[in-house]
Amino acid sequence: MNKSRIAWLLNSAFFYWHPTLSEYTRIFPETTVFAGWWKGYAPGLEDSFKVEVMGDHKVIPILRSSTSYGSNFTYLPLNIVNRLFKFKPDVIISNSFGVWTVLALLFKPVGRWKVVIAYEGSSPGVDYRNSAPRLAVRRAMVKAADACITNSQAGKAYLIEVLKAKVDRVFAKPYEVPDPKALLEYSGSSDSRVSQLQHPIFLFVGSIESRKGLNFLLEACAILEKQKMHNYTLLVVGDGAQREELEGFCRSANLTERVKWLGRVDYGQLGTFFSAADVFVLPTLEDTWGVVISEAMVIGKAILCSKCAGAFEIVADGENGYIFDPYDPEKLAQLMSRMISDPELVSSMGKKSQQLMTQYTPKAAAEFLAKVTTTVLEGH
């Protein structure tokens, strides 16, 4: 049994972290997650790792953007320093380049711990490539850290090429991956809202805001409507500021029979809708990763993934789905039409999705992270 003490610093320890953290704790039992935002354990993973809630984080907008993450400052409780000195970790794995990572690096010589920076993935809104001051700070942080991890090859390229991290200190592999058992916890109970819907069912899950690109997906549906292609359903799961506007668009485009709005649902119930769907669509204009893609794939769904999502890297274009430009609804409509017209294609793509996900399991992710941790501990 490995007795090294590991601290995870997560601004938001949301459910998609939990499968990997659960498996990682099996390898390093003396692991504690220090969380800013916490909604409890994912279904089926209760008490599978230790959590200390430090107090909620606050995102303070600096420059808002409708199509990107925008420029933000995230405030986190500063009492993390005292807790770390009390916990006495050997290694700290800290999320991104926020306040907690800065503090972990500043007190590293005193605490004599190692620091790993976890950078989810690269995207314009979080990379700050045009901000010389931010890049200077990040380069200094990367230089002081013992290693960096990222889900994507794009994240790896950013860390090495832009932030000048040493190649042998950057490790890339998807570590935010789902556990199908947690996702399907309540999916045994059918939902009357989906049982009679026209197949194929295209599923969107996410916040209804401009950055998620749902308006372009609905424009693609409007194109299909003009082509008199009616034999499908788009299921929208989520809520947000743009919902009223987009529901109005659906009424004006005669899409009310095609598009069904379910609102926000609990994470444990998402499996019901993933199971009912045939094709998962992520039309995002910017996402550093996009764990919903892997959630849909692990349940065996065909995929339509925006090229602006970091998770497009795990989609095999033409094999388990298609990668598309979210700003091109004409092309998206063509891809949807192809899937509507060929149920066997959709079925085979769904099977391919499950096959691809056999390499991206919580256990595999935990083993990857454990290898990085061991490398750091041994000073290689």
Rank of each mutant, 00 (worst) to 15 (best):
A165L: 06
D287M: 09
H57Y: 13
L214Y: 01
I223C: 01
M54W: 11
Q242R: 13
L246C: 03
M297A: 08
P343M: 11
I201V: 06
P362L: 07
K39W: 13
T150G: 05
G248M: 07
L217W: 02
K212T: 04
T288Q: 12
D47S: 09
P133K: 08
L10D: 02
V281C: 08
G300P: 00
H199R: 13
A220C: 04
R112F: 00
V237L: 13
I27L: 15
G248E: 05
F97T: 10
S152K: 08
A182C: 05
V99N: 04
A118L: 11
L106Y: 12
I223H: 04
Y41C: 09
E52T: 14
G321S: 01
A136I: 14
N231L: 07
L270E: 05
Y175C: 06
K307M: 11
F49K: 04
W38N: 09
T74R: 12
A42F: 04
A370R: 06
F273A: 07
V33R: 01
M297W: 07
Y24I: 14
M297V: 06
E378K: 14
V372I: 01
G238M: 03
V194I: 08
Q227R: 15
N254G: 04
Y267P: 01
G238H: 02
V102N: 12
F97G: 07
P200E: 03
Y175A: 08
Y186H: 12
G238T: 03
G350Q: 11
W289A: 11
A145N: 09
K212E: 04
L270R: 09
Q359A: 15
V142W: 03
